[in-house]
């Protein structure tokens, strides 16, 4: 199949940037989206052009490094799928595909489709952990955990930190990301001692980074590759109000 790509190109963080059109031919429907870009990049390199910079690593949907807004939807229209797991068979021959980076002030563009998501790390630094130095832990069976709690904590903990929630949110809010961690640790007995301070510190840091506020649109959970549920945000609000 043949496609027309409209790709955001931006040489440096200060560059104004623009959409550039590329024609890609003989795309196999079995290719992944990133493989399609690989093929285009190989061509660009041989033509002496700058290949399109994009972040990616594991290419199996778990590292959270890849991410682009495809036709206006973070990670593309296929649900619960990272960009690397999206395959070309979901596109029509002859289609025009628009590819843009995550757009949010706290995620400045580094180059082309690469953005700086270190704001997420700083939110974790503010309190997204349990303070337990290596070697100081009690036996793992010392505290039983209800299976339901462990399962719910796991569901929240599957967040891969890709940032699609921010990219999709009309408010540019990082609530789902922050809430996932607050919920994960808040549901487990090990996370209780720091529960209040964690919620407060992480939410404050999120605001400080310049993310928008949550208006419960649900766009975040709809594009989340791991389907982190919206009720984590209610949990975060609960913990934050309590703190």
């Amino acid at each position: 199949m043949n496609l027309t790509l409209k790709v955001w190109r931006q040489k440096t963080p200060d560059d104004k940037g623009r959409m550039v059109k590329y024609l890609v031919q003989d795309v196999s429907p079995d290719m992944s989206f990133l493989e399609m870009l690989d093929v285009l990049n190989e061509r660009l390199i041989l033509e002496g052009d700058d290949p399109i910079a994009f972040d990616h690593d594991c290419r199996e949907g778990i590292c959270g490094m890849c991410g682009m807004v495809i036709n206006g939807v973070a990670h593309g229209e296929q649900r619960a799928t990272t960009t690397c797991q999206l395959h070309m068979r979901h596109f029509e021959d002859g289609a025009t595909v628009t590819i843009e980076p995550w757009r949010a002030a706290p995620f400045p563009v580094v180059k082309d489709l690469v953005v700086d998501r270190s704001a997420f790390d700083r939110i974790i630094q503010a309190g997204g952990f349990v303070s337990v130095p290596a070697g100081s832990a009690p036996d793992a069976h010392a505290v039983p955990v209800k299976k339901d709690d462990a399962d719910a904590a796991f569901d929240a903990a599957t967040c891969i930190g890709c940032g699609a929630c921010v990219a999709a949110c009309p408010n540019g809010s990082a609530s789902l990301f922050t809430a996932a961690k607050i919920t994960h640790l808040g549901l487990l007995p090990q996370g209780q001692p720091e529960r209040d301070s964690r919620a407060k510190a992480m939410v404050d840091q999120m605001d400080l980074e310049g993310f928008g506020g949550c208006t419960n649109t649900g766009e975040c959970t709809a594009v989340c590759p791991k389907g982190i549920p919206l009720d984590t945000i209610a949990q975060m609000n609960r913990d934050y109000l309590k703190a």
């Binding site: 206006g72 229209e77 999709a168 408010n171 928008g212």
Partner: peptide
């Protein structure tokens, strides 16, 4: 806050997923 958090808008028409 929302418009400050997204100073550059998307070129493609946003499709709501929710």
């Amino acid at each position: 806050r929302a418009s400050k958090a997204r100073p550059v808008k998307y070129a493609a028409r946003r499709k709501t997923q929710a």
